[in-house]
Design a binder for these strands. Structure first.
Lengths: 177, 177
DNA sequence: TCAGTTGTTGAACGATCGTTCAGTATCCTC
DNA sequence: GAGGATACTGAACGATCGTTCAACAACTGA
């Protein structure tokens, strides 16, 4: 259902596509949901809720700042992989409607929380301070989010392997030391 | 013109939107271009050509593998920023039409060239070999491409600053040593 | 001056979109 | 087994989409 939105994009997916994917007729779909936009809102809420839940986990709120940051990077990657269609949908929202703009607002709030985590780690002297903190935040979680562009279930790597690679690359870099 | 595709997404942008943005009527637009898809094809070609051109630059074809890789990461980031609307459009293509699928094919070829650069740097012992090379390639250029999600002209950073930060983070990591 | 190219217009086209609705099954409950 | 909720259907709706076209203006070169 949400997979159709991902494959074709939300705008390019018709209610007929969704009906076909669920084995119903178009009008049967309207018996269960208010409309296309309500379907989008449900899917976006699921992604946002899962991401915010990561920020509330014990390892994200206690311990050294750099370890809290590492935990959120790892768990954020795992959530992205496990809820791939939902999070991908969230990452592709452009703000065309009220539902989309509400999701973008929640995403922005999430990004602010991430920026604070990065700033705390810098202030604690555990993360390099020679780069702009805002830039670091965006690139760090840009790396995490980029996984949605290529990851496919049943592929060569599971969620943990991807998350470990993201953490290893982000924190220690590509170069051989 | 291409800015409209970016702001709303290709599918959500009508020919009327494009006409309004160019100060023409809808039918006047059709005097200059064959149709909406031809407009997309033109924009996508511009992005793809600029990216492939980076691979042909002198510093991308000579020198130590790790330096060639670093050059492509830096220049790839700069091209993305300088041709932001065009590259963003390319990165959002989903393959709904023949034009989009052709662009995806060219992008895949580009990605293969990137993977070979990474593999060469690993073989030369200049890049860490404890991670899957394919995974490293995807995350590395996922970081580069993620810039398109937030960069806006006239913001706090210019293309060089962003490119330097991408290189610094990707190659040496976040952690303070 | 005139023929021809180029640029533009407004109206209309068929197609497809999201949505609605009256009507028909199917099921659960008493 | 009667009655009401629930699930579903096929057909149609108004709107919007990309595209076409006959008509008209403006400019060009001979």
């Amino acid at each position: 259902m949400v997979g159709e939105f991902i494959a074709r994009g939300y705008d390019a997916t018709s209610m007929e596509d969704i009906a076909r994917a669920t084995g119903m007729t178009k009008s049967a779909v309207y018996h269960h949901v208010a409309g296309k936009e309500a379907l989008l809102a449900l899917a976006l809420a699921r992604a946002v809720d899962a991401l915010f839940a990561v920020l509330e986990e014990a390892d994200a709120t206690t311990g050294a700042p750099v370890d809290r940051l590492e935990h959120v990077v790892r768990r954020g990657t795992q959530v992205l992989v496990e809820l791939l269609p939902y999070v991908s949908l969230l990452l592709r929202v452009r703000g065309n409607t009220a539902v989309e703009r509400a999701a973008l607002d929640r995403r922005r709030e999430f990004d602010h929380r991430l920026a604070r985590l990065v700033q705390d780690a810098i202030d604690a002297g555990q993360v390099r301070a020679d780069l702009d903190p805002g830039l670091v935040t965006r690139l760090l979680f840009g790396t995490v989010n980029s996984v949605n562009e290529w990851y496919r279930p049943g592929g060569a790597h599971d969620a943990d392997e991807v998350a470990d690679a993201v953490v290893a690359l982000s924190f220690d870099g590509l170069r051989r030391h």
